Simulated scan of single mutants.
Amino acid sequence: MNLINTKMESLYTYLDDSAAYLEKAQNLTYLEGLAEAGENLFREEVCQNVTMEQKNWLLDKLDSLNLEELSNEDIRKAFQLAVLKGMKGAVQPHHSMTPDTVCLFLSYLVNKVIGKREESIHLLDMAAGSGNLVHALMNQVTAPLSVTAFEVDETLVKLAFVSANLQKHELQLFHKDSIEPISYNPVDVVVTDLPVGYYPKDEIAAEYALRAKEGHSFIHHLMIEQAINKTKDGGFLFFLVPNFIFESDQAKQLHEFVKGETNILALLQLPKTMFQSEQFGKSIFVLQKKGENTIQPKQALLAELPSFSKKEALSDMMKQINKWFKDELRIE
């Protein structure tokens, strides 16, 4: 095993052992214990109210690790592995994580549309979860980023916060429902793995064009509308959407709204092998908000991505995507 993997494994072992220990000692869930273990590591001290014996055990674990030896990607990946372990034991269906390969592919697409810019790009994630996607983007996107992220789940937002601290990432992270009225400057880029389902707050949904005519509205539709409204003219939006997004009874309404406000650039279906069953399949939906200098492509890029493990097929697909961006949007 090479040195980098060994260091990453050491961090994972620290996080896993300490999270499991705090889970029992403090009567927490594993994910809550993980956030506490990460906080201890960041502060280089035991932050919990524990017995002297428990404190010494936790301090011994802390002393076994030197965070300065690890890269941000090592930290992100080790933290992500521990979060994934915790999510397997969690009962909440919304506790899920954007797969690493998808994070890296989205980073490639964001780099593609941003190009070589020296000024800071304002990026928004409407539903950050444990922060894996937004932290991957902060590590992989070449332009300087100013990042705003929202997450409504208390445990997940704490995990995202701790992961940001460990990677020394600066971002505005809000423990808030991003569909509620919010005030901040329009952003250049939105990247969000959309939650899927019904939004329970009908009085807030009533203010949206994409509200349901009867019953609860779709949270993923409302989030798309909010994101478009919060994006600058000419800005880009990348959503992970369910494959069935244009098959529901509200699909026509969604399509008309999106078409009116944006240029639909691409719908890239993720490999079916990534999902337990077809009903959970997702696609990357790429939009550009209409503006003075935006180009309406003659044809949107529609493709089914090959397995990310098939390097040759993936390389061919990326050549096709690069050619499409060059031919249709004049983006090199």
Rank of each mutant, 00 (worst) to 15 (best):
V113Q: 10
V113S: 09
I114H: 12
K116C: 01
K116V: 00
R117C: 00
R117A: 00
R117I: 00
E118R: 07
E118K: 07
E118L: 05
I121Y: 01
H122V: 04
D125N: 12
D125W: 14
D125Y: 15
M126I: 05
A128R: 02
S130L: 03
N132R: 14
H135Y: 02
A136D: 03
L137R: 01
L137V: 02
M138Y: 13
M138I: 06
M138L: 12
N139S: 11
V141R: 06
V141W: 07
T142K: 14
P144Y: 05
P144A: 08
S146Q: 11
V147W: 00
A149C: 05
A149L: 02
A149T: 03
F150H: 13
F150N: 15
F150E: 15
E151I: 11
E151G: 10
E151Y: 07
V152G: 01
D153E: 12
D153K: 03
T155D: 05
T155S: 06
L156Q: 12
L156K: 06
L156R: 04
V157M: 11
V157Q: 09
V157G: 10
V157K: 14
K158H: 07
A160I: 00
A160D: 01
F161G: 06
V162T: 14
S163P: 02
N165T: 07
L166A: 08
L166F: 05
L166R: 03
Q167C: 15
H169W: 04
E170T: 02
L171S: 00
L171D: 00
L173E: 08
L173M: 13
L173C: 12
F174W: 01
F174A: 01
H175K: 14
K176V: 09
S178H: 05
I179Q: 00
E180I: 05
P181E: 13
P181W: 10
Y184F: 15
N185S: 13
P186S: 09
P186K: 11
V187T: 11
D188Q: 02
D188T: 02
V189K: 00
V189P: 00
V190N: 08
V190T: 11
V191R: 08
D193S: 09
P195A: 14
P195K: 15
G197H: 14
G197E: 15
Y199R: 01
Y199E: 03
P200C: 08
K201G: 04
K201S: 11
D202Q: 11
E203I: 07
I204H: 14
A205N: 08
A205R: 04
E207W: 12
A209H: 15
R211C: 05
A212S: 14
K213A: 05
H216A: 13
S217E: 06
F218K: 15
I219A: 14
H221S: 11
H221N: 15
M223C: 13
I224D: 04
E225P: 03
E225S: 10
E225A: 06
Q226I: 07
Q226P: 04
A227Y: 00
I228S: 15
N229P: 06
N229Y: 13
T231I: 09
K232L: 09
D233V: 07
D233P: 15
D233E: 12
G234L: 03
G235L: 10
F236D: 02
L237N: 14
F238W: 07
F238N: 01
F239A: 08
F239Q: 07
L240S: 10
V241F: 08
P242H: 10
P242L: 08
P242M: 09
P242I: 10
N243Q: 09
F244A: 15
F244I: 06
F246C: 04
F246A: 05
S248F: 03
